[in-house]
C-alpha cells in the first residue's frame, strides 16, 4: 500500500472514529437503544455499499440482496451455534457461501436484462427464504435462536471498513472500470474487449460476499434469525438506501444508509405512523431529487488536500 497524504488522513479519521465510539461505549454514554441502531447503521452501510456495486456501478438491477444476507446469517449461525466454530471462521464461511449463491444466481440470470433480472433476483431471494422456511435443521419458520452474541463494535467497524476499502479499491482499478463500462453501454464494453459475463458475475459474487458478512454480523448481534427477517421488503430497504444515496456513489450509500437507519430509529415511538412518514419522505425526496443525494459524485477529501495530478476516478480513493 502506498500512503498519500489523502490516504493517511482517511486512515487517521477512520481510527479516530473507532476509538471515539469505543470510548463512548466504555464510558457508558451510549444507551442500549443507541447501540442497536449503531450496529444497524454499520450493517446497513455494508449492505448498501455492496448492493451499489451491483446496481449502481455495474448497472444490474437486483432485488435479492436480503437473500444473500440470509445465506450469510444462517451459515455463520450454524457454524458458531451448532458446530462450535470461532466467529471469524463463521463470518468467512457465511460470506463465501453467499458469494457462491451469488455466482449460482448470477450465471444463469445475467442473460436477463433490466426488469426481468429484477424479478428473477427477487424470486431467488424468495426461494432462499422459502428454503429456510422448510428446513427443520435451521428451525423452519420459527428460525434459529440462541446464537451467541459475538458481534461487537470492533467486529462491526472492522468489517465495515474492510467492505468499503475492498469495494472502493476494486472500483478504482481497471476491473472496476470494466464494470462501469457495462453499466454505460454493454455492447460497447464488449467490443472493447471486456468479458461482460465475467464482470457481471464477479460483481454479483462480490456484492453477495459482503451481504453475507452483513448477515453474519446481524445474526450474531441479535442472536435470533427468522426467514421473515429476510423478505423482499428487506431487499427493497437496501435498494432504497442505494438509490437515495445516489447510484454509483459509495459515499452516497454510506450517508444514506446511516441517515435512513437513524430516521427510522428516531420515529420508533410512532409505531405504524413511522412507516407512513417514512413512505411519504421517500416519495417526496425522490420526486425532488431523483438522482439521489450525491448523484454519481463522491464526497472526497480532495477539496482539502491538494491532488497529486491524478485523474478523477469513478469513485473516491
Amino acid at each position: 500500500m502506498r500512503f498519500s497524504k489523502k490516504n493517511l488522513l482517511s486512515l487517521a479519521g477512520a481510527i479516530l472514529i473507532y476509538f471515539l465510539v469505543y470510548w463512548l461505549q466504555a464510558a457508558g454514554v451510549i444507551s442500549a437503544f443507541q447501540e442497536i441502531n449503531l450496529m444497524m447503521v454499520g450493517i446497513n452501510i455494508i449492505l448498501a455499499v455492496s448492493l451499489n456495486l451491483i446496481v449502481g456501478f455495474t448497472g444490474q438491477l437486483a432485488l435479492g440482496h436480503a437473500g444473500f444476507m440470509a445465506v450469510g446469517a444462517y451459515v455463520s449461525a450454524i457454524l458458531t451455534t451448532n458446530l462450535g466454530q470461532p466467529f471469524p471462521v463463521a463470518i468467512l464461511a457465511g460470506a463465501c457461501t453467499a458469494a457462491v449463491a451469488g455466482i449460482i444466481i448470477g450465471l444463469p440470470t445475467l442473460r436477463l436484462r433490466g426488469d426481468y433480472l429484477a424479478i428473477a433476483t427477487l424470486g431467488f431471494g424468495e426461494i432462499i427464504r422459502g428454503a429456510a422456511n422448510n428446513i427443520n435443521y435451521i428451525g423452519g419458520a420459527a428460525g434459529m435462536i440462541g446464537i451467541p452474541q459475538l458481534t461487537n463494535w470492533t467486529w462491526l467497524y472492522l468489517m465495515m471498513v474492510l467492505t468499503i476499502l475492498v469495494i472502493v479499491n476494486f472500483l478504482n482499478s481497471t476491473h472496476g472500470r470494466a464494470c462501469v463500462a457495462i453499466r454505460e453501454n454493454e455492447i460497447a464494453a464488449e467490443t472493447m474487449g471486456i468479458n461482460t459475463t465475467y464482470y457481471k458475475v464477479l460483481a454479483f459474487a462480490m456484492g453477495a460476499f459482503f451481504a453475507g458478512i452483513a448477515g453474519a454480523l446481524y445474526a450474531h448481534y441479535f442472536y435470533l434469525i427468522q426467514p421473515a427477517t429476510f423478505t423482499f421488503f428487506r431487499s427493497f430497504d437496501i435498494l432504497v438506501m442505494v438509490v437515495f444515496g445516489g447510484l454509483g456513489s459509495i459515499t452516497g450509500s454510506i450517508i444514506a444508509a446511516a441517515a435512513i437507519t437513524i430516521i427510522n430509529a428516531a420515529l420508533q415511538d410512532l409505531a405504524v405512523l413511522r412507516m407512513v412518514i417514512y413512505a411519504v419522505l421517500l416519495i417526496v425526496i425522490m420526486v425532488f431529487r431523483p438522482q439521489g443525494l450525491m448523484g454519481t459524485r463522491e464526497f472526497t477529501l480532495d477539496r482539502w488536500v491538494p491532488k497529486r495530478g491524478e485523474a478523477s476516478g469513478s469513485a473516491g480513493n
Binding site: V55, L61, G114, D115, F236, L239, V240, V243, F244, L247, V272, L273, M275, V276, Y278, A279, V280, L282, I283, M286, V287, P290, Q291
Partner: peptide
C-alpha cells in the same frame, strides 16, 4: 428521471398504502 427513481417512489407509495 431514469428507471430506478420511479421504482423507489412506487415502493414508497406501496409502503404508504399498507401502513
Amino acid at each position: 428521471a431514469g428507471r430506478l427513481a420511479p421504482l423507489i417512489t412506487a415502493i414508497g407509495v406501496s409502503l404508504f398504502l399498507e401502513n
